[in-house]
Amino acid sequence: MNISRRSLLRGIGLIGLSTTVLPVIDKISGLDSKAVAGGTKNSGKEKLTKQWVRIIDLKKCDGCEGLGMEPQCMAADRSVYHRLEGEEWIDVKKVHGEGDSTYWMPIPCMHCENAPCVKVCPVGATYHSETGTVLVDNRKCIGCRFCLAACPYDRRFFYWEKRDASPKDAFAEYSPEFPLPPRMGTANKCVLCESFTKDGKLPACIGGCPRGAMYFGDLETDVATNGQEVVPLKKMLAEHNAYRYKEELGTKPRVYYLPGHGQEQGREPRE
C-alpha cells in the first residue's frame, strides 16, 4: 500500500482527535455515564426513582435547648456513624436573625441537585445515587479534597487519621450507603441514611428529632413525614414560604427551610 507521509500523519491526527475530543463532547452534553450512580447507570438524564428531600421547620427547632440536651439530630448522627466533634454531618447552630432575634439552624448536607462536589470530583468517587442522594465511594476516592473546597455549605469532611473501627462496624460490609468502617485518607459526607431509607426507615437525624422539626419526603410522590404526621410536600412548601439556603448559588439544594420567627428568609443568617 502506498501511503504518503502527510496522509499517514493526518490519519494519526484524526484518530488522536477522535479519542480525545469526542468523549469530551459526550461528557459536556451530559451523557457522561460515570457521573451517575458510580458508573452503573447509563444516562444522567434517566429519571430518578425517588427524590429525597428534607424540610426543616425552623419554628419547631430549639436546638434541644428546652430539653436541656445537645441537639438530638447531631447525637443520632454521631452514634450511628461515629462522627467526631467538628465533623458532624448535620450541624445545629444558633444564629442571629433580624431584630435581635436568635434562632437555631440545623445545617445538613443539602444533597444538591447541581452539586458542586459531584462536579469537581476527578475520579467520580462522589456521585448522585438513584434517589438523588450525593454519596462518596471511599474505595475510589483519591483524597484530593477538591470536594471540600467546592462545597459552599462546609458539609464535606476528610478522614485525616487512621481510626479504629468500632466492634460493630469492624465486620460491616462496606458500601457507599453505609460507609463504615472509616477509610483513612478519603472524603466523607452525610449519606442521608440510604441504608435505612431503603428499608423504609427514617434517616437517623429525622428519627432522632424530639420536636418533629424535620421532615423527610420524596418530591416524586409528593409526601413527607417527620415520623409523627404525613403531609403533602409541595403544599407545605408553598404554604410556609419555604426557602433554600444560599439558593442564589445555583446549587439547587434538596433541603427546604420553613421560616417563622424572624429569619432573614432566603438569605444567609448573620453570624
Binding site: 461528557k27 457522561d32 457521573a35 470530583c121 476527578p122 475520579v123 467520580g124 477538591f146
Partner: peptide, 8 residues
C-alpha cells in the same frame, strides 16, 4: 476513572 469536567 477520570472525569473530564473536573478542573483537577
Amino acid at each position: 476513572h477520570g472525569r473530564i469536567q473536573s478542573p483537577l
